[in-house]
């Protein structure tokens, strides 16, 4: 994650990154189109997993927890790869903004926690809120670290 002069914070779009500033004016239909398409794929995968692993109002939302942590692992890895090996202008919009942004969800996280509190399970709500935060941050870090190691190994192999 050692970036060049433009240090990216926001993986969706960061206007301090020149390429991000230019992408929408340059290809508005393509950028918004691939974000929409990726968002549909991510949302359908999320809905499928949530339907397969339902939870009661007082229960721990394991499906959404797993979705959000997995999405964080993948965004960490994706951004590490794209920083080391810049790809086409639609790759980050499609995979990062669309697929992973559509796959993970914050609104369901907040509402599930609120409903657990309302249903008389504040302990479950607190555990869920904290576990998702810790899991998400560790996952971003791990995704970045693993991708960076694989990229370094690939570079080492190419040098030999």
């Amino acid at each position: 994650m050692t970036g060049p002069s433009e240090f990216r914070v926001d993986p969706d779009v960061d206007l301090r990154v020149p390429a991000d500033r230019r992408e929408l004016p340059a290809h508005p239909a393509a950028v918004l189109g691939v974000i929409a398409a990726g968002g549909v794929l991510g949302a359908l995968a999320r809905a499928g997993l949530q339907a397969a692993f339902p939870h009661p109002p007082t229960g721990f939302p394991w499906a959404t927890f797993g979705i959000n942590v997995a999405g964080c692992l993948l965004i960490g890895a994706l951004m590490a790869v794209l920083t080391a090996r810049p790809a086409g202008p639609l790759v980050r919009p499609f995979l990062g903004v669309g697929v992973l942004g559509g796959f993970t969800t914050f609104s369901t996280y907040a509402v599930d926690a609120q409903r657990a509190i309302a249903a008389g399970a504040p302990g479950t709500a607190l555990a869920y809120l904290a576990a998702t935060l810790a899991g998400a941050l560790l996952a971003v870090w791990a995704g970045d670290a693993v991708a960076a190691r694989l990229l370094a190994r690939a570079r080492g192999g190419a040098d030999r």
Partner: peptide, 19 residues
């Protein structure tokens, strides 16, 4: 599931926080 789920994101929030 569709609109709110895709409008909001944990992957972006997690990445931003680490960065």
């Amino acid at each position: 599931t569709g609109f709110c789920g895709a409008l909001t994101t944990w992957s972006t929030l997690g990445y931003e926080t680490v960065r």
